[in-house]
Write a protein that binds this DNA or RNA. Sequence first.
DNA 1: AAGGCAGCTTGACACAGATCAAGGCCGTAC
DNA 2: GTACGGCCTTGATCTGTGTCAAGCTGCCTT
Lengths: 239, 239
Amino acid sequence: MPHLAFPNSTCDGFRCATHCSVRPLAICGELEQLEHEEFERLAQHVRYGPKEALFSEDEVADAVYSLVEGIARLYKLLPDGRRQIIGFALPGDFLGMAPSARYSFSADSIGGVTVCKFFRGPFMRFIENRPHMLLRMNEFATRELSLAQDQMLLLGRRSAEEKVAAFLVGWRDRLARLEGVTKTVSLPMGRQDIADFLGLTIETVSRTFTKLEREKLIVIVPDGVRVLDPKRFDALAAA
Amino acid sequence: MPHLAFPNSTCDGFRCATHCSVRPLAICGELEQLEHEEFERLAQHVRYGPKEALFSEDEVADAVYSLVEGIARLYKLLPDGRRQIIGFALPGDFLGMAPSARYSFSADSIGGVTVCKFFRGPFMRFIENRPHMLLRMNEFATRELSLAQDQMLLLGRRSAEEKVAAFLVGWRDRLARLEGVTKTVSLPMGRQDIADFLGLTIETVSRTFTKLEREKLIVIVPDGVRVLDPKRFDALAAA
DNA sequence: AAGGCAGCTTGACACAGATCAAGGCCGTAC
DNA sequence: GTACGGCCTTGATCTGTGTCAAGCTGCCTT
């Protein structure tokens, strides 16, 4: 994972708003200096190690989170343990809004993660009379919803090969927004996570990666893939 | 379809804000008298016949809609014609917000539909300095997102029988909010729509209905089903 | 260097749901 | 009344993906 946040920063990542490299992408990206300082006073910066829970489904939703660094897995479980990953959160993403008093899904870190944590009460009081902030929350929610709808189309109507290709293209494009365009797509999540995101089994994901490699569309590298034929690959993902 | 809106209304459904029976559920539900009158002046009430398009994916998103009466089907298509229905809209639902300048999905009426249509510019100007309105839009977006995430779990991880049961329970509960609790769940959409919503084929949906009937969980009636054993049925939908 | 183990890949086989094909039901048109 | 068309159901068969079971690879520990 090359520098998703705080690249070459002299800052310790704690109480360091002015150097936060994802700020322009985050919920607080359009606040002016003074407002941002007030906002920052509401935040707790919290660091999580690998595979720690930020929050869990059905817990009282007492906080919201702005992801600063690292990657989180968002998921729902069925009573018998079947899991559906509903998304991977990247730096700049905003987590934890719920339609009721409890979280509607669980979130945990994949590698290490840093967040700005805001308790619900103070956060709501801050935004409730700031239309530009509410407008930004709306934009975030609308984008998330659109992503969720794309994912419904994928889950309901695409073949295994199309699912994997579409996932890799979507993930590459989201990383490009943060890291810039690269040929190698890093995949910090494991095969089981990809399977649970795509509604497949780990075996099918593994076989499909191998198949795409045999077809000379990708090369599998440690912790990622290199896309060989972007044209043909994007076509497969779209179709 | 028994009286989803304007039940026993003497009003003609046109420019008739004060009698709009879904108002409390709609986006404009918390506006006070004066504000609501101003809001109403921005609206065009539009009536659609069966199977008409309200808007289509990739069209310029120049308007948003508040559904007043009837039911709409929201869907996305793949280039080869495969369709995924991403939701059914009911009276009170708010449609047409997009993360870019174009609609990210298509919407058309199932039976007849009445909407309040707002052009984007005036609508945005109305809400942009009204925090309570923005907050309400946020609530709507968050609820939609949560519904979408539930649907991802369904599409990715449930069996055909679980999908159908969960669909019927979810649909029954949404109708209950409008019509009150009933034993008979009316299904204004066809089998193909249900199939495209659940990521199944029409044959599998049909067979599954028959199977649920053989198992004495439901009775199939014209344009709907009657739930015989709500306890056992809810359990199947949850599991 | 050896052992262990977590994560990944591969193979053989099974099955849920898709596909293909036919037939039934019911409302509408004439 | 009967013919048509849309929608739904049912049956027979096929197939993509799941399941079960090894084995491989690279990394961490000792």
